[in-house]
């Protein structure tokens, strides 16, 4: 889809044209926006560092490996063992889940049944923990419980739906 590539530049074009037409003090407004961005970032950085450190520590340790083995024995591999890591890591880390998807693509191919299911999973939900941290971090609010709870529940629903929809849609 080539239209997508034109959206952002097109938007800037429209904004600039409008600013010239209305004779706006564009630089002053632009600088005002930049200052706001810097203020936001100041509040965000410490929280982001705390989150990234904890996720890195967790991913480095082999906790997910143990969970995977445990789940495989419980579910009798109804959901293929290759998909469990993606399912568990998806809400935690965007880059880690991307790496797993790439791994599945390179080993089984993007058009294999595993590749298709992984694609739908990857596309259907976002990195909940990261988004919750960034968004609430920007306002320095600690009461993230509801958002996190609902977000993770929605992730669970999303991932299960992804598996079922993918199996049904591609009749795997």
């Amino acid at each position: 889809m080539t239209i997508a590539r034109y959206i952002l530049p097109g938007l800037v074009f429209i904004i600039v044209c409008r600013a010239i037409y209305k004779k706006l003090p564009a630089i002053d407004l632009f600088v005002e926006g930049i200052n706001e961005a810097i203020t936001l970032m100041k509040q965000l950085f410490p929280r982001l560092l705390a989150l990234i450190f904890s996720v890195k520590l967790l991913l480095y340790s082999d906790v997910f490996g143990w969970i995977k083995t445990g789940l495989n024995t419980i579910t009798h591999e109804q959901i293929s063992g290759e998909l469990w890591p993606l399912l568990l890591i998806k809400p935690l880390s965007g880059s880690a889940s991307l790496a797993i998807t790439e791994d599945i693509f390179s080993r089984f191919g993007p058009d294999s049944s595993l590749g298709l299911i992984a694609s739908v999973m990857q596309g259907a939900t976002d990195t909940t923990l990261y988004i919750v941290t960034v968004y609430f971090g920007a306002v320095g609010i600690k009461h993230v419980k509801t958002a996190l709870k609902v977000g993770l529940m929605a992730d669970f629903i999303g991932i299960m739906t992804a598996v079922f929809i993918a199996k049904w849609f591609f009749s795997l």
Binding site: L11, V12, I14, I15, V16, R18, A19, Y21, K22, L24, A26, L29, F30, V31, E32, G33, I34, E36, A37, I38, L40, M41
Partner: peptide, 17 residues
């Protein structure tokens, strides 16, 4: 990203877009 988009957003806002 934030600096540029919030900057453009400010201009767009003043232009009623």
């Amino acid at each position: 990203l934030m600096m540029f988009w919030l900057g453009f957003m400010k201009i767009a806002e003043a232009g009623d877009l």
